[in-house]
Design a protein around this nucleic acid. Structure first.
Lengths: 248, 248
DNA sequence: GTCAAACTTTGATTCAGATCAATGGGAAAG
DNA sequence: CTTTCCCATTGATCTGAATCAAAGTTTGAC
């Protein structure tokens, strides 16, 4: 059963953990105040579907804490993940009536939602929101295009190494532990979810993770806790340029 | 040798073939006039590289006529196309100093370019441009995500059928011949370019096109001219919903 | 007209990853 | 403590697409 824990959630934008990265990050105090009037928090449990593809949606919003996935499914059941939503990522498309993809909570999840119509109105009147959303959308487009290279041209081993390096990188940028040779993080995804992300089967994911472990590229503690002794080595395994690719 | 045929290009926005679809489509007369002052046309011959990945770029712009591709290349030479640029599509990213991808003219190409700094300034001051660019970027993101499903989960035959259906659809929407059972168009890409788009080899592309021809899904006249007797049949071969997917 | 270059098709063989099939934990429920 | 369920690993086999190889076709240059 759904237990809505909105009461435990901080409602003050000043203390919001994604205040400086989300769609509202460029808002002034008065703009935040107006956003505050149309916002509300929603909690989801791990495994819950947040939005069904094709459904009408009456809200957009930001991931505050937790992780969600954006997934596309074919009639015969084949599925492809098309986005991984981490804290501060935006969900929904202003100007569109129905959802294009399934959104599923991978961990327990808290979202800061805005009623759609008021948000659209506010966006039209508030350049700082529209500008930030454009910037975030362009970043997502770049990520999607990098992912197209992974899906289209990389081997299974390179795909796994690519996914690990992306998670390792995003994790480091949140903890401020960049530029360290060793990196440690938890995998937020099951083997099956990784397979859906990478266009592989879960068996192949498992085999390639075992292979990377055997070759000393990674060390596993349990199923989810990953230690990368030499991050550059991982990037080489991913087929990436060592300098970390295109983003600056 | 490069022959710049700018003299033959219409400079009047009122007669521009992409006036109603490009990034400037929502501009008023006075805004167009200001854009006019920072715009210039450039022509490229088929095969010419418009922008090299990593290069500093001092312009952004729109494809006016012709077709270009957006391509990513790994050190060992594997390449993946990550975008197909048709008339009205936008090239370049405001706010970024260097190009992330190679842009190559697939046919003879005319672009309407804006010097970057003035364009960025104007975007900040002109909501109609920023709004339209956001809309176009969201559309591209949707297209990229649909492509991720194609790359990650579809078979070679489905990939070819998907590409043909996308070209057939975009072509129909430009000629206003929607809703016809039969559709006719020219392939704007070589077999190799199709392979780069689909994450296949050119041999597999050739084989699957031959197979679709043998099975009567398509009729070929020459190498490039395609007749699709029953477009719904093609969509089924592509593994898509017959209703044409998510866009409305 | 011949020739060269670029593009395309088709065939034979190989191989990476899918599929089919057990087996192995670990955590929560009883 | 045992059972159950979910997730993960590992093995055996199969197959779709890659790779290697050779012609065929079209176009434009000379």
């Amino acid at each position: 059963m759904l237990r809505n824990s909105a009461a435990e959630i901080p409602h003050d934008c000043g203390e919001c953990p994604i205040r400086h990265r989300a769609v509202c990050s460029r808002c002034e105090a008065d703009e935040l105040e107006r956003l505050d009037q149309i916002k509300y928090y929603r909690s989801f449990q791990a495994g819950q579907t947040v939005i069904w593809a094709g459904d009408r949606t009456d809200f957009v919003g930001s991931v505050v804490t937790g992780i969600a996935t954006l997934t596309q499914t074919m009639e015969d059941g084949r599925t492809q993940m098309v986005g991984l939503l981490l804290p501060s990522d935006f969900v929904g498309r202003p100007g569109r009536a129905s959802a294009a993809y399934d959104v599923v909570a991978t961990s327990d999840l808290v979202m800061c939602c805005f009623r759609k119509k008021p948000f659209e109105d506010m966006m039209a009147a508030t350049p700082s929101i529209a500008q930030r959303l454009l910037e975030m959308t362009l970043d997502e487009l770049d990520a999607a295009r990098e992912w197209m290279l992974v899906l289209g041209r990389k081997t299974a081993r390179e795909k796994i190494a690519s996914l690990l390096s992306i998670i390792g990188r995003r994790n480091a940028s949140m903890n401020g532990q960049e530029n360290t040779r060793e990196r440690v993080f938890d995998l937020p995804l099951t083997r099956e979810a990784m397979a859906d992300y990478l266009g592989l089967t879960l068996e192949t994911v498992s085999r390639q993770i075992s292979a990377l472990k055997r070759d000393g590229v990674i060390v596993l503690e349990g199923k989810r806790h990953v230690i990368v002794p030499d991050f550059d080595r991982l990037l080489i395994e991913a087929g990436d340029d060592c300098d970390g690719g295109l983003l600056t």
